[in-house]
Design a protein around this nucleic acid. Structure first.
Lengths: 166, 166
DNA sequence: AGCCAAAAGGTTATAGTGTAACATATTGGT
DNA sequence: ACCAATATGTTACACTATAACCTTTTGGCT
């Protein structure tokens, strides 16, 4: 069962990464788009943690994994592709990117972001989506997309005495 | 009566500006903080329209209203003050700022942003706020703030044939 | 296989957004 | 009038993102 808070607790993160890569390959294959080695590499780097990563951080990681440096357009183009295919999301409040755990259908995503451990958890709550649409409709707006980013403390960090040591 | 969609229709916008300035002066006075002339000028510029404005746009407007140019820190410090006092909000998805129509109590704000006319309408919907808190609580998160930005078409632009001419 | 057009990636330069650090000026209380 | 606190000015720079142009790779075609 999918529990959003999983990202905040101990888990075998290798599974997250490999699942994401397998899903991405299948999805791109079905859609007839090309998950090139660069794009796959960027996707894998994005998935290195459940913390959103900035484009320049990813660029440095790419550079270290390679023999030469990588320029911004290279990583931004890969990110654009991954965004386009719904394999990653952009967190506006952080200027950062995070892997999507359920990319098979495009969806509106919502995020819970822990201010302490920096983990971002994706929610996909149909009822909340409906509520947002309703609220917009009350004002006569037609919705094409939305961005909901909730900041706070994840369960682990609420009870974690170590957070005072930061 | 306050109707969010007002910003999208014709209205005497001078009232919006003067109301905002009057409210800001009173609020700052009550709080014992200083609404300096620079800060008030930036607030007035932010209120020039219901479209969020970028910091550099505001900087240029300040420069044109003055005899000399203004540097980024000057406008960012004024914006920081106005944000701190809840007199303006930042729209993360646009890197832009907009006046708050109800600054007297601090609140979580939600925005409807028209992709066509660029107007951003602020909502303050207690029920929606509650829903967001509930959704976060289901995942064990405690909420400290959130950012909800809904993009779409405002009532006027949905029926406006001119939008095809853009 | 070899050709070709389309897609992807490389490279350089630059635009747009935001802040650090330090100097000067202004304010308000004593 | 003086002083400390606050606000603003100034310079330089960091971070985020894209434009423009060139080269390489890919996959369909004869």
């Amino acid at each position: 069962m999918y529990t959003p808070a999983k990202a905040c607790s101990h888990h075998n993160h290798g599974h997250c990464i490999s699942d994401a890569i397998v899903a991405a390959r299948q999805l791109c294959d079905e859609r007839g788009v090309r998950l090139t080695s660069l794009r796959e590499q960027v996707l894998e780097l994005v998935w290195q943690s459940h913390q959103p990563l900035g484009a320049y951080t990813l660029m440095d990681m790419l550079g270290k994994a390679s023999t030469r440096q990588i320029a911004p357009p290279t990583v931004y183009r890969a990110l654009d592709f991954l965004l386009e295919e719904g394999l990653i999301h952009r967190i506006n409040s952080l200027n950062a990117f995070i892997g999507c755990p359920s990319p098979s259908q495009k969806h509106q995503s919502h995020f819970l972001i822990c201010q302490d451990c920096k983990v971002a958890v994706e929610l996909d709550n149909a009822q909340l989506n409906q509520h947002l649409n309703d609220v917009a409709a009350e004002s006569g707006f037609s919705v094409t997309s939305h961005s909901l980013e909730i900041s706070g403390l994840c369960p682990a960090c609420q009870t974690d005495g170590n957070k005072d040591l930061l």
